[in-house]
Amino acid sequence: MRELQSYQGIRVGDELPELSQTVDQAMIDAYADASGDINPLHIDPEFAKTTFFGGTIAHGLLTLAFVSRVLSQWNWQGWAYGGELDVVFLGPVRPGDEVRVSGALELIEQRADGVYARCSLVCHCGGKAVVKGFAVSKL
């Protein structure tokens, strides 16, 4: 494994395309329907009021769908064929929040089967990070 500073015009420090997505209850409900994940914490305001969160929150995996949109746009081939994602959920996304997904290349490495980029990732709601981690994509 060998570290590179750049590869075919892509450099360490380059930023990924940024994405902003507003999440509302209708989107959360639609995702619950599409995914089959009908945990009442996401779709039942009365139940959600009784929980630690005090109201409904979006599915964590809905937020990751936005991350996947960014990586698909940036490097579809490398993301869909061999891409890796490793994230921690730090806080909730609530109806009405705008999720901002951003990331940057922190490492380019030559492996036995090709060149890979490791990108730091963060999703913010307002000034608060709600998801943090990294993705690996083949270049």
Binding site: L41, L64, A80, G82, L85, V87, V88
Partner: peptide
């Protein structure tokens, strides 16, 4: 039980 949440997630996408 209801109220559980996701803490961490890792995926490797071998192919779509």
């Amino acid at each position: 039980p209801p109220g559980g949440i996701h803490g961490k997630q890792q995926f490797k996408f071998h192919r779509p």
